[in-house]
Write a protein that binds this DNA or RNA. Structure first.
Length: 222
DNA sequence: GCGACAG
DNA sequence: ATCTTGTCGC
């Protein structure tokens, strides 16, 4: 598929330029529900190989709401930006966009590894990806970047607001009882309440480690 | 100045 | 992100 990029920009930036750009793109994030018809949901997993020299992105598409596997794609490329907390998207998104272009048909919703607006400048990787693709996007982080929250009860479905001062920037949600909670935040064109519902609905059959395992299978095949 | 810090 | 060791719950 051809990917339409909105608010396109250079990736050859200094850390200072990247931070400045985040401030401008953050104002484009839509924090309310503005979905299209949801038929396919894509899980986006990012990471690296070879001690960081290679950046890897895996996109696993499933049908919605039945969560049947539809299509998996993998992209790898030489890393061109270092990992700096708060600037993850500048290291990972070029590979993600390359992977998305390999899909035979576009997804309707993105579940992206990492934070959405739960970010110092409100533009984590999921929000950045949402703005560039203009697709509804949800950030699902495995650990915290910023924000404070009350303890989360141990049962599945329990959640607490993640706040930065007075602002609610996300939710800390248990997708399974007594398992480490995930950090859910708005990426684009979705409300926090809807994002929580979607993650909870997707989690039972689409466990967060699942895209990683599929990634490893794809990686060993290529 | 010191600690924290998505993946 | 990755690696290792010790502990705990089912």
């Amino acid at each position: 598929m051809r990917l339409k990029i909105h608010h396109a920009h250079s990736w050859d930036l200094s850390p200072a330029e990247a931070r400045q750009l985040q401030g401008r793109l953050a104002s484009c994030v839509v924090r309310e529900d503005r979905p299209g018809t949801t038929r396919r949901v894509a899980g986006v997993d990012v990471g690296f190989e070879s001690g960081g020299r290679i950046t890897r992105a895996v996109v696993s598409v499933m049908s919605w709401p039945d969560l049947a596997p539809v299509e998996d794609v993998l992209a790898r490329r030489a890393t061109t930006f270092p990992y700096i907390p708060g600037l993850l998207s500048f290291r990972e998104l070029p590979a993600v966009l390359e992977a998305l272009e390999q899909l035979s048909s576009p997804p309707d919703l993105l579940l992206c590894d990492g934070q959405g607006i739960a970010h110092p400048r409100r533009l984590g990787i999921a929000a950045h990806l949402g703005v560039l693709t203009d697709l509804p996007a949800i950030g699902v982080g495995k650990s915290r970047l910023i924000g404070m929250h009350e303890p989360v009860p141990a049962h599945r479905g329990a959640w607490r607001e993640l706040r930065d001062g007075d602002e609610v920037i996300g939710a800390v949600l248990r997708t399974r009882a007594r398992v480490k909670p995930v950090y859910v935040s708005v990426g684009h064109r979705i409300s926090l309440a809807t994002a929580i519902d979607v993650v909870l609905q997707a989690a039972p059959r689409y466990r967060l480690p699942e895209p990683i395992r599929r990634a490893d299978r794809l990686a060993s095949r290529q």
